[in-house]
Simulated assay, not measured.
Amino acid sequence: MKQKFYLWIEEYLFFPNNFQKIISFLLLPLTFIYMLIILTKRAMAKQIEFGIPIISVGNIIVGGSGKTPVTINLASKYEDVCIILRGYGRASKGLQVVSLRGKILVDVKTSGDEAMLLANSLPKATVIVSENRVTAILKAKELACKIIFLDDGFSKYHISKFNILLRPKDEPTNIFCLPSGGYREPKGFYAQADIELLEGKDFKRVISIKKDGKISELPTKTILITAISKPKRLLEYLPKDIKMISFPDHYSFLKEDIDKIQNEYKEYVILTTGKDLVKLKEFNIKNLYLMDLEIEISKDVDFSLMNEYIESFNKGV
């Protein structure tokens, strides 16, 4: 029942049916108030210069659009890099140094799933989670990091940074901001990006199936377990008859969740994403398969502006 509700919400926000469109229109007064708050915050923000290159990888729609894998792709090209993110779904509060130049210092409950995925994927990077991005940036400088990537930092108007915005391959038919639609910021804000990357044109997702770190074929009886935003997007990479059980984004799996699934689907192997795998490892699941996601960025994308921005700090400008 919960799974159907979350999928209904996803449909309402992005690709509403006629009934959902009515609800969307009824909520427009609240949407206008929300947009007024966003525009006021942006207009009144006084940007802080930190003396270090800060690259924000963000989007303006609710939920995932490839921010984390794109961040991994870009950050892997630099030395002394720090990734800063809020750490949604973590049990901790405040600033936590998840990894320091590749050495992981906390567990996944403290870090949150995305931060741990970043820490595992970037073995030389520093990863920090914090609700306060300013505090985290100052901590990164204290740790002698030379470049910072903000995961989902576009809306931090008070931070002077270079903005990369990701645009989905399938643009939502619902063009409104919350709560009438799935946009966190007005659609026109794409024009505020220093670089805009369109999925399918500027970058694409490459999926491989792995078991115990090796490329593998999926058995016929497979069930997908995931707790990511917009889980239906995974299905285009998988066999049509695959079963899926989805949980809310950043959900912390419980032993009873896994026991229930394994009892109900005794003959099935379990498939999951990298973001979910960091939380499922503790359950020692047999026959656990991974949807390994990598991002390929087109050679036609011009990163010269970003390179000039980074180089300006190296020159002391």
Rank of each mutant, 00 (worst) to 15 (best):
V62Y: 10
V57R: 03
L95Q: 02
E282I: 13
A45Q: 04
I297H: 08
L26T: 10
I52G: 13
F149L: 04
K46R: 13
E282W: 04
F162D: 09
V81H: 14
Q47L: 08
F5S: 05
E185M: 07
Y265S: 01
I245E: 13
R184C: 07
V206A: 13
I22S: 03
L224G: 12
E49N: 15
T173W: 00
T68R: 02
Y190L: 15
A193Q: 12
K2A: 15
S65Q: 09
Y265D: 11
E236A: 05
P172F: 05
L150Q: 02
D300I: 01
A91P: 02
A193H: 12
K46G: 11
S121F: 12
F154K: 13
P53A: 04
I223D: 12
P168G: 06
G89F: 00
G213P: 14
D152L: 05
E282R: 13
E296M: 02
I60K: 08
C82L: 10
S298P: 04
A91V: 06
Y251F: 11
T40K: 14
D80S: 01
V301L: 13
M116D: 05
L293D: 03
P16G: 04
Y183D: 06
S246Y: 15
R167D: 03
I60D: 00
D257E: 13
K275S: 04
R86A: 02
I207D: 05
I245W: 08
L95Y: 00
K230H: 06
E114I: 10
I159P: 12
I52L: 05
V98A: 01
K124V: 08
K286Y: 01
I245M: 12
L235R: 05
Y34N: 09
T40A: 14
L7Y: 05
R90D: 12
P168N: 02
T222F: 01
I215W: 01
F303P: 03
Y237L: 04
T220C: 06
F162Q: 10
N59I: 14
N17M: 01
G51I: 05
S111K: 01
D152S: 06
L95C: 02
W8T: 11
M291D: 02
G200I: 07
N59H: 09
K124D: 13
V57H: 02
I55P: 09
K214Q: 14
I104A: 04
V134L: 06
D107E: 04
D212N: 15
L117W: 11
L117E: 13
L166A: 12
G274R: 14
E308A: 10
F5M: 07
F25G: 02
K21A: 03
D107F: 05
I55F: 00
I104W: 06
P219W: 07
F154A: 14
I72C: 02
E185L: 09
I147C: 03
S92G: 15
K161M: 08
I52R: 02
I104D: 06
D302A: 08
L28K: 11
D107P: 04
